[in-house]
Every structure is written in C-alpha cells, then in structure tokens.
Lab assay of single mutants.
Amino acid sequence: KSEISQVFEIALKRNLPVNFEVARESGPPHMKNFVTKVSVGEFVGEGEGKSKKISKKNAAIAVLEEL
C-alpha cells in the first residue's frame, strides 16, 4: 500500500480529518520544487519533492511517523 492510502486508512479508523495542500512552489518552471503539508487531526507532516506527487508522498511518510 502507498503511504498516502495508509494515512487515509489510519485517519478513517481514528475518525480524524485529512487535508493535503501544496504549501510552496519554488524554482524555475523547468525545475520546480514543491512542499506539501498534510494534517491528520492535530498531527502535521511536511514533504518536499521535485513534483507534487513526490512531495505528497514525503508528507504522508512524515505524518505516518507521528501517527
């Protein structure tokens, strides 16, 4: 299972809201860097990556460590 689906499963079991959002985009158009924030109830994680998908996955990994 992907880290993102694990976050949603845990949140569902604990009845917590999940929110993913792109917090920052930086860099030139051909080499963008994304920072995504995820919140699961009061737990927050942040991930960085060269694409929105990678930064979302890294944010999920960060919040899984707290859950």
Rank of each mutant, 00 (worst) to 15 (best):
60 A>C: 12
56 K>H: 01
3 E>T: 08
64 L>Y: 02
19 N>S: 14
13 K>G: 07
43 F>I: 09
15 N>I: 03
32 K>F: 04
54 I>C: 08
21 E>Y: 10
65 E>A: 13
41 G>A: 01
34 F>T: 05
36 T>N: 02
16 L>E: 05
65 E>H: 12
1 K>A: 05
57 K>S: 05
60 A>Q: 01
3 E>H: 09
22 V>K: 15
28 P>I: 07
40 V>E: 04
39 S>K: 13
25 E>P: 09
48 E>D: 05
63 V>K: 02
7 V>C: 03
60 A>K: 02
12 L>E: 12
29 P>R: 12
58 N>M: 12
17 P>T: 14
35 V>Y: 10
65 E>T: 12
46 E>K: 13
65 E>L: 06
28 P>A: 10
51 S>W: 03
64 L>W: 02
60 A>L: 06
64 L>H: 03
36 T>D: 03
44 V>L: 10
48 E>P: 01
31 M>H: 15
24 R>P: 13
4 I>Y: 01
63 V>C: 08
37 K>E: 04
16 L>G: 01
21 E>N: 08
47 G>Q: 03
9 E>C: 07
32 K>I: 10
20 F>A: 04
29 P>I: 09
56 K>A: 05
37 K>D: 01
33 N>M: 11
62 A>M: 08
59 A>V: 00
47 G>R: 03
30 H>I: 07
19 N>D: 08
66 E>M: 15
3 E>Q: 08
46 E>Q: 15
61 I>K: 13
12 L>S: 14
41 G>C: 00
58 N>L: 09
26 S>F: 06
13 K>C: 07
54 I>E: 15
20 F>P: 02
13 K>W: 03
23 A>C: 12
39 S>M: 12
52 K>I: 10
8 F>N: 07
51 S>C: 07
67 L>N: 03
64 L>F: 00
16 L>H: 02
23 A>E: 11
64 L>R: 04
7 V>T: 02
22 V>D: 11
59 A>S: 03
51 S>P: 05
55 S>G: 01
2 S>E: 06
18 V>Q: 03
54 I>N: 05
27 G>C: 06
24 R>Q: 12
35 V>A: 08
49 G>A: 05
46 E>D: 01
48 E>H: 12
60 A>F: 12
10 I>T: 04
16 L>Q: 11
4 I>G: 02
27 G>E: 06
19 N>E: 12
24 R>M: 11
14 R>Y: 13
39 S>P: 02
62 A>I: 06
15 N>Y: 03
38 V>L: 12
35 V>S: 11
45 G>C: 13
7 V>K: 03
18 V>E: 04
38 V>T: 05
51 S>E: 04
28 P>H: 11
18 V>H: 01
20 F>W: 15
31 M>K: 15
34 F>R: 01
36 T>R: 01
1 K>W: 04
9 E>D: 13
50 K>E: 14
21 E>G: 10
58 N>A: 10
14 R>I: 03
66 E>W: 12
19 N>T: 15
25 E>T: 14
22 V>E: 13
56 K>E: 04
40 V>N: 03
17 P>Y: 07
16 L>R: 03
12 L>T: 10
47 G>S: 02
8 F>C: 08
58 N>R: 11
50 K>P: 15
27 G>R: 08
11 A>K: 03
55 S>E: 02
59 A>L: 01
58 N>F: 05
48 E>T: 15
36 T>S: 09
11 A>R: 01
2 S>C: 05
29 P>L: 08
31 M>P: 11
62 A>Y: 01
40 V>D: 03
34 F>N: 05
3 E>A: 13
40 V>A: 04
48 E>L: 13
16 L>V: 10
60 A>W: 00
11 A>I: 00
23 A>S: 12
43 F>T: 09
3 E>K: 09
39 S>D: 04
14 R>W: 08
45 G>V: 06
56 K>T: 05
46 E>G: 05
37 K>I: 04
13 K>F: 05
7 V>W: 00
1 K>G: 10
36 T>Y: 05
67 L>V: 05
50 K>C: 13
13 K>D: 07
31 M>L: 11
33 N>V: 11
25 E>C: 11
19 N>H: 14
32 K>C: 12
37 K>C: 08
8 F>P: 05
6 Q>A: 08
31 M>T: 14
24 R>G: 09
54 I>F: 02
64 L>G: 05
28 P>W: 07
63 V>I: 12
22 V>G: 09
62 A>E: 06
24 R>K: 14
1 K>V: 07
31 M>E: 15
51 S>Q: 05
55 S>K: 00
33 N>S: 13
33 N>A: 09
65 E>I: 03
13 K>R: 12
59 A>I: 00
36 T>G: 02
49 G>N: 01
15 N>C: 07
39 S>H: 12
52 K>Q: 07
6 Q>N: 04
51 S>F: 00
49 G>H: 04
14 R>C: 07
41 G>E: 03
42 E>Q: 13
18 V>P: 06
25 E>G: 12
41 G>N: 01
56 K>I: 11
27 G>T: 07
35 V>C: 12
42 E>I: 06
15 N>W: 00
61 I>F: 06
30 H>M: 11
18 V>M: 06
60 A>T: 05
46 E>L: 15
19 N>L: 12
28 P>S: 12
47 G>L: 00
66 E>H: 14
23 A>W: 10
53 K>A: 11
45 G>L: 03
45 G>K: 11
66 E>D: 13
20 F>M: 07
2 S>W: 00
59 A>D: 02
17 P>H: 11
34 F>Q: 05
14 R>N: 09
7 V>E: 05
47 G>H: 04
48 E>V: 15
21 E>A: 12
29 P>W: 07
37 K>Q: 08
33 N>Q: 13
11 A>N: 03
46 E>Y: 13
59 A>N: 02
61 I>A: 14
60 A>G: 02
3 E>Y: 11
11 A>W: 00
50 K>G: 09
61 I>R: 14
19 N>K: 15
53 K>P: 07
13 K>I: 08
26 S>R: 07
33 N>T: 15
33 N>L: 12
17 P>W: 04
42 E>L: 08
3 E>I: 14
9 E>N: 06
54 I>G: 06
44 V>D: 08
59 A>G: 03
56 K>D: 02
13 K>P: 04
46 E>N: 14
62 A>W: 00
45 G>I: 05
19 N>M: 13
17 P>V: 10
15 N>T: 05
47 G>Y: 00
52 K>F: 05
16 L>K: 05
56 K>M: 06
38 V>P: 02
30 H>C: 09
37 K>Y: 02
61 I>S: 13
62 A>P: 04
28 P>Y: 06
34 F>W: 15
22 V>W: 06
40 V>C: 07
36 T>C: 15
14 R>L: 10
29 P>M: 11
49 G>E: 01
48 E>W: 14
4 I>E: 05
5 S>T: 02
58 N>S: 06
